[in-house]
Each structure stands twice: as structure tokens, then as C-alpha cells.
């Protein structure tokens, strides 16, 4: 991974006109070219800093216990034993399935409900709409800690603590951030297709489902990806709601393994390291599946916020 940018550096740095391409400056002074070379070299070095911890982690997961801390890039005595041990010590397959179920439900429900609500705010004009939307935005300011305990008590009263329901069911009612995000996209749609559909007798549901949603597919995918990441990586709620280890999500399970094998436990770091890799890899895969969406999504939501 790191070898690629290093090899590409000279080309990128020398590439003429790569800079402000279309600008009127056709001849690049040598100084600018040098600046570019320094910038790219710095960026390559920083890339190593950013990516290396992940490579370190991956590498350590193939090392026997005594070598975990040797900081070598390539394991001296590569072994798959850690993966076997982790698989035996912990119900990893079960945790992975649990997490997959929770993630799919959490991301699916929040995407659908937030899209519905966002469409309600974007398309229909009625009195009080602005105030209601202001309320949506205001809820984003509320620290999660304030509602944490009463929300727990709600699920407790319903007898659902210990199940995965509290980890996703709240998402059926939309989430302020995604409502905001999707509304931005819906507001960008032209009104004509909807007026035309209305004349053809389409009802509100058809207009939403058949026209608005397909036109805003990137934003819908983005919402799903964002929530999938948030749900997969969450530790606080699994800590609060899950009691039996057979119901754990993978971050909760990793925390249990840290407690058992980490600093306060048996100091079998190779187990913790390997479980960390197994927890992280699906997110890296998710990123590469939706790379374009992640970067574009953060750019738009950030700059519009």
C-alpha cells in the first residue's frame, strides 16, 4: 500500500499542468514545481503515518504472543494461530451475525424513516413547517447523555433490555442529522416532475417512492452507509443494553476480550489484536464499497452545516 504512492511521487510531482490545469499560466516556474514536489513528499510521509497503525495491527495479528510488541512490519514467525484461538475463545461468528443484523436493521430503518420525514419537510408547504424543522435541528444539540437514562428506562419497562431491539428500534422514527442531510438533497430537486406526476394522478406516496427517492439515490445510500458505520462501531449502547455474551455485537465483544485478555486480565495481547482486526476489517470494506459516497457526503454536509 505504501509502496504505491512512493513510486508514483515523481510522476505526480512532475506532471505538467496538473496544478491549476485550465489556468492562463502555461509555463510553470521551476519553483512551483519544487513546491509541488515538497507538498507531495510530505503527503506521502503523512499517508504512512495514517495507514501504518492499521498495517501494524494486521501484522501483529499474525505474530505469536512473544512477538506482538516487536514492531516488525513482517512477522518473524507468521502464524494463523491467533485467529484459531480467538475463534475458540469467543463466539465470534455469533457476534458478527448479531452485529450484521443490528447494523442492517439500524441503517435500513433510519434511512427509510429519515427519507420520509425529510420529504415531508422538503416538498409540502404548510404553516409551522419552519418551526418544526427548527425543532429537528435543535435536537441535534442535545447531548446523548441527557436522554440515555430515561431511554433505558423506556426499554426496561417494555422488557426489551437484553435484546437487540433498543439498538435499532429508535431509528424507526428518523434521526435529525439524516433528516437534515436528506432534506438538503430533496430541496435540490426540480418541482416539475412532481407537478406532472400529480396531473397524471400520482398520489403522494408514489411521488415519494417512484420519483424523489430514485432521484436522490446517492443521498439515500450515504445515509445508509453513515448509519451502518455508526451502528457497527457503537460501544455505549451495547454496553448499556446487552447482558448475555451470546447477544453481544462485535465492539461489545471486543471490549469483553480486552477485559479478559488485556491489561487488567491475562495479557494475551495477540487475542485482543486479532479481535480488533476482525472488528475493523468490515468497516474498511464498507468504506471501499462506498468510498465516493463517504467523501462527497462529508463534503456537502460539512460545508452546508
Amino acid at each position: 500500500m505504501t509502496a504505491v504512492p512512493a513510486a508514483a511521487t515523481p510522476e505526480v510531482a512532475v506532471a505538467p499542468g496538473a496544478a491549476e490545469g485550465a489556468g492562463p499560466r502555461r509555463t510553470q516556474p521551476a519553483r512551483r514545481r519544487w513546491t509541488r514536489a515538497i507538498v507531495v513528499t510530505t503527503l506521502v510521509a503523512l499517508t504512512v503515518v495514517f495507514i501504518y497503525p492499521l498495517i501494524w495491527l494486521l501484522s501483529a495479528s499474525f505474530k505469536p504472543r512473544a512477538e506482538v510488541f516487536d514492531n516488525r512490519l513482517i512477522p518473524a514467525t507468521p502464524t494463523l494461530e491467533n485467529y484459531v484461538t480467538v475463534w475458540q475463545e469467543a463466539p465470534l461468528a455469533l457476534w458478527l451475525v448479531n452485529t450484521l443484523v443490528v447494523t442492517a436493521l439500524a441503517a435500513g430503518t433510519v434511512t427509510l424513516s429519515s427519507a420520509l420525514v425529510a420529504w415531508g419537510f422538503a416538498y409540502f408547504r404548510f404553516r409551522g413547517r419552519g418551526a418544526l424543522f427548527g425543532l429537528v435541528l435543535a435536537t441535534m444539540m442535545l447531548p446523548g447523555a441527557v436522554t440515555l437514562i430515561p431511554t433505558f428506562l423506556i426499554w426496561n419497562a417494555l422488557g426489551l433490555v437484553g435484546t437487540n431491539v433498543p439498538l435499532w428500534a429508535g431509528n424507526m422514527f428518523g434521526s435529525a442529522f439524516y433528516i437534515f442531510l436528506l432534506r438538503q438533497f430533496f430541496l435540490g430537486l426540480p418541482r416539475e416532475p412532481f407537478e406532472a406526476a400529480k396531473l397524471d394522478g400520482a398520489n403522494n406516496w408514489v411521488m415519494f417512492w417512484r420519483i424523489a427517492v430514485p432521484l436522490c439515490r446517492p443521498a439515500i445510500v450515504l445515509t445508509f452507509l453513515f448509519e451502518a458505520q455508526a451502528s457497527w462501531t457503537d460501544l455505549m449502547r451495547p454496553l448499556v443494553y446487552l447482558q448475555d455474551s451470546s447477544t453481544y455485537t462485535i465492539p461489545r465483544g471486543l471490549k469483553a476480550l480486552i477485559d479478559q485478555f488485556g491489561p487488567g486480565g491475562e495479557s494475551q495481547w495477540e487475542v485482543v489484536v486479532t479481535a480488533s482486526v476482525i472488528t475493523t476489517v468490515p468497516m474498511i470494506v464498507l468504506f471501499f464499497l462506498g468510498q465516493r459516497h463517504f467523501v462527497q457526503g462529508i463534503s456537502t454536509t460539512g460545508s452546508k452545516g
Binding site: 505526480v12 509541488r36 499517508t47 495491527l57 460501544l235 462485535i250 475493523t280
Partner: peptide, 23 residues
Amino acid sequence: QAGRSAGFFRTAFFIPKMTPPVA
């Protein structure tokens, strides 16, 4: 300042953000 290579480095800087906080 990185011109066309910015996209690649932007991706490289973002990837760690995908790591679960527990890890």
C-alpha cells in the same frame, strides 16, 4: 496544494476514521 493526487491522499487520511473506537 496537491493537485490531482489530492483524491488519493484524502482517501488515505480518511480510512482510519472507519476504525471502531474500541479498536
